[in-house]
C-alpha cells in the first residue's frame, strides 16, 4: 500500500509552518524525563518518549486556575477571561488523548463546566505511535496502540520516517499544507508493537471485581506503604478533583476564587465543617482511588477512568503499583 510519509528531519519544518497559525504544544526533554510545553524552537521536540511528568490535562484543568473574580467594594462576581487560542497538540500518545476524552465526559456531561470546556475549543491533536515501556499498560485497559480515536492526524513511526494519516477535515487541511514535506511511501503493515499485558483480566467486567472487594486485604497492605502524598492523583490524566479557595490581594479590593488540583488520598479531602472525615483511614483512601478508576466512574461507553499511562506507578516514591493492586483483586 502506498501512503504519505514525513521524514523525521522534516518534522521541525512542518511544525514551524504550524506555528504560523497555532500555538504548538509538544513533548520536550526535561532532565531524564519529558514534559509537554509550548514550542518555541521545533528542534526541541522529541517524538520518541515514554511519558511526560504531567498529562495534557494541565492545559485544560491547570494546577491552579481562577473560577471567579470579584470586587469587594463593588460587590460583583465576574467570570475571568478564559482563553482558547488555536492550539495544535503535537506528538501525543493515544492513551493521553483518551485521558482528555475522559475529562471531556466528566466536565461536559451533567452540569457543564465552561471553565474547562472553553479551553477545549480550537484544539487539534496530532498523535504519534509509541513503544510501551515497563510502566505502560494502556492495552490492558482497552486502549490498543493503534487506537486513533480523537486525533486529527496520526503519525505512525517507521524507522526514519512517519506515515501521515489525516483523520478529520481539520487534519486534512493541515496535511495539504504540508505537501512540500511529504513523500510517497509504501508499506506492508503497521509495525508490530510488543505490549505485555499487565492485568490478569480484560477491562470488560472489571467493575464487577469490586463487588465484595471492599474488605479485601490488599487495601490495608497497600496503605502500609502509602505516604498519602497525592502524587498518583496529580499525575493522573483522568483525576480531576479540585479544592476551591478564596483569596484577597492584600490591601486591595480585588478577590478571586480559584480551584486547585486536589487528591482523594489526603486526609482533609472529605473533612466537613464539624471536623469529621469520612475516609479517615488511609486504606479507605487507597481503596477509593482504585475503585474510582475502575468501578465508580465510567464514561458513556463504560470505559474506566484509567488509561494505562503508568504515571502513578512510575512516579510513586513508595513503589505502589495500580496494576499489582488490581491483580491482587482479580
Amino acid at each position: 500500500m502506498s501512503a504519505k510519509a514525513i521524514a523525521r528531519e522534516k518534522i521541525p519544518d512542518a511544525v514551524l509552518l504550524l506555528k504560523t497559525k497555532y500555538r504548538v504544544i509538544a513533548p520536550v526533554p526535561k532532565g531524564k524525563t519529558f514534559v509537554f510545553k509550548k514550542i518555541d524552537d521545533p528542534q526541541e521536540i522529541v517524538l520518541d518518549y515514554n511519558t511526560t511528568i504531567l498529562p495534557l490535562k494541565k492545559f485544560f484543568l491547570p494546577p491552579r486556575e481562577v473560577l471567579v473574580e470579584y470586587n469587594l467594594k463593588k460587590q460583583e462576581y465576574r467570570e475571568p477571561e478564559i482563553k482558547s487560542e488555536p492550539t495544535v497538540f503535537f506528538g501525543i500518545h493515544n492513551y493521553e488523548l483518551q485521558g482528555i476524552l475522559r475529562l471531556d465526559y466528566a466536565f461536559g456531561t451533567g452540569v457543564k463546566d465552561e471553565t474547562y470546556l472553553k479551553k477545549r475549543k480550537n484544539n487539534i491533536f496530532i498523535g504519534v505511535t509509541y513503544t510501551p515501556d515497563d510502566f505502560h499498560f494502556a492495552k490492558s485497559v482497552g486502549i490498543p496502540t493503534d487506537l486513533k480515536e480523537g486525533f486529527d492526524i496520526f503519525l505512525t513511526k517507521y524507522n526514519s520516517h512517519y506515515r501521515v494519516e489525516a483523520l478529520t477535515d481539520k487534519g486534512k487541511s493541515i496535511v495539504s499544507q504540508w505537501s512540500e514535506f511529504l513523500e510517497e511511501c509504501s508499506y506492508d503493515s503497521d509495525p508490530v508493537v510488543h505490549f505485555k499485558n499487565k492485568l490478569k483480566q480484560s477491562v470488560a467486567g472489571i467493575r464487577e471485581v469490586f463487588h465484595g472487594a471492599y474488605n479485601h486485604p490488599v487495601w490495608k497492605e497497600t496503605s502500609k506503604k502509602c505516604y498519602s502524598c497525592g502524587t498518583c492523583n496529580l499525575v493522573c490524566p483522568t483525576c480531576y478533583c479540585f479544592d476551591v479557595s478564596d483569596e484577597v490581594v492584600l490591601g486591595t479590593n480585588r478577590g478571586s476564587r480559584s480551584r486547585r488540583w486536589d487528591s482523594c488520598q489526603i486526609l482533609g479531602f472529605t473533612e466537613v465543617a464539624g471536623g469529621e472525615a469520612f475516609r479517615e483511614k488511609r486504606y479507605d483512601r487507597v481503596r477509593h482511588r482504585m475503585s474510582r478508576k475502575f468501578a465508580y466512574i465510567m464514561d458513556d461507553r463504560d470505559r474506566p477512568f484509567c488509561v494505562g499511562c503508568g504515571r502513578c506507578i512510575r512516579q510513586c516514591t513508595a513503589n505502589i503499583s495500580i496494576t499489582d493492586v488490581m491483580n491482587a483483586l482479580l
Binding site: I53, L54, P63, C229, G230, T231, L234, S263
Partner: peptide
C-alpha cells in the same frame, strides 16, 4: 509533593 508535581 502536591505543589512539586503542580510545577512539573
Amino acid at each position: 509533593c502536591v505543589e512539586c508535581k503542580a510545577k512539573e
